[in-house]
Design a protein around this nucleic acid. Sequence first.
DNA 1: TCCTGTGAATCGCTTCACAGCT
DNA 2: AGCTGTGAAGCGATTCACAGGA
Lengths: 224, 224
Amino acid sequence: MVGEPGRNRRIPEAIVVRLPVYQRILAELLRGGTATVSSEELATRARVNAAKVRKDFSLLGWFGTRGTGYDTAYLATQIDRALGAARDWPVAIVGIGNLGRALAGSEGFSSHGFRVAWLFDADPSVVGHVVGSTRVAHVDELPAMLGAAHPAIGVIATPAVAAQQVADLLVAAGVPSILNFAPRLLTVPGEVLLRSVDLSIELQVMSFHLQQADGDLRRPAHWP
Amino acid sequence: MVGEPGRNRRIPEAIVVRLPVYQRILAELLRGGTATVSSEELATRARVNAAKVRKDFSLLGWFGTRGTGYDTAYLATQIDRALGAARDWPVAIVGIGNLGRALAGSEGFSSHGFRVAWLFDADPSVVGHVVGSTRVAHVDELPAMLGAAHPAIGVIATPAVAAQQVADLLVAAGVPSILNFAPRLLTVPGEVLLRSVDLSIELQVMSFHLQQADGDLRRPAHWP
DNA sequence: TCCTGTGAATCGCTTCACAGCT
DNA sequence: AGCTGTGAAGCGATTCACAGGA
């Protein structure tokens, strides 16, 4: 563990969520050859307040130079380290439908240290296929295959009805964190990290706002 | 527009995001034949504080019965109405790779009033295919096809590099809201609703926490 | 008694504003 | 002069705690 100042504080979730955004901007700046960047510049690009940017970095113990700004490369390295991008995170994906395939092939996985090491599905017609460079195994083999190995992250991309069952399997196999894409509230033991992404929630929030706007503002002439 | 009390207040985003969660729980309770539900019961299932549940509903002008709880069916109806689930929301999806297909086929779309009415892709080998019951058109046809019709929501499921360009097309075609899945910060005019879902951010937040836990707690014996 | 509805207290994040370093 | 680092104020959401209706 490194000894930067601020390293032992608890870091607010709100900041953690912004780190990947900063990281993406810094990567872009680095490609453009920018050596230093001001909080103002970063803030504009990330669409946040400049004070927030400074407070974020300060809380994490990363410092800039007064009068100049932050060292782009240094900042990028620090964020990579904080996010664990330098490490190798083996991932198991369960549910190799369209979503599972999309995840397996996504840049978001291949970069940032995530390595798709296992694929599972319950459908015999999918088992045996090779997606990317990984063979799809039957979900019944999951306990045996993951029992000895230790994936860092289990991804659930199954239909809602199978999600809890799969979560239980992953937990039993000792997987320490689960990313769930099935539209279902899951129950896992407290020591297991669980995050959920729910498409339908995003859509519904959107239609809520559309509905609001529609009531307040004019209604388009034709709405097929 | 209906005349419930509290209807003309501005509703905090934090509440809107919880509505789909409540809705899912209520649907489940209804299937089980539960006629009334207490804030405590809902709170436990949604993993939030009971006072929050009561405050949410009270702010939206929906009331329960003291000593008894809330009417399950009534609550479900109100949430559906608030979220616009009773209406028809035509959706256009751009980018018919694995992610686009997953979205087109997802339950999250088909239920809740979302109707996938247009599919677009830039790859000639994909154009002409039928996904679900909709034919994939070339993205060059987008302006013509969406210019007269009015999709409520445009979904971007393209690679990052094409995302801004597609967003511009959708905006020009008069699409009032965009749901973006490409890992890119998009710029759209202020009157266009924009929400983004970024897979890689979810993953990175997860590896941040794993890294933290790994520093604090014991390290598993083998981490392949 | 049970459970809602809500004012008041609290919490945590955001923003302001400015002292201080380069 | 320019830009960071940060105390203090501000603000929105959460939680407490209890009055009051069924």
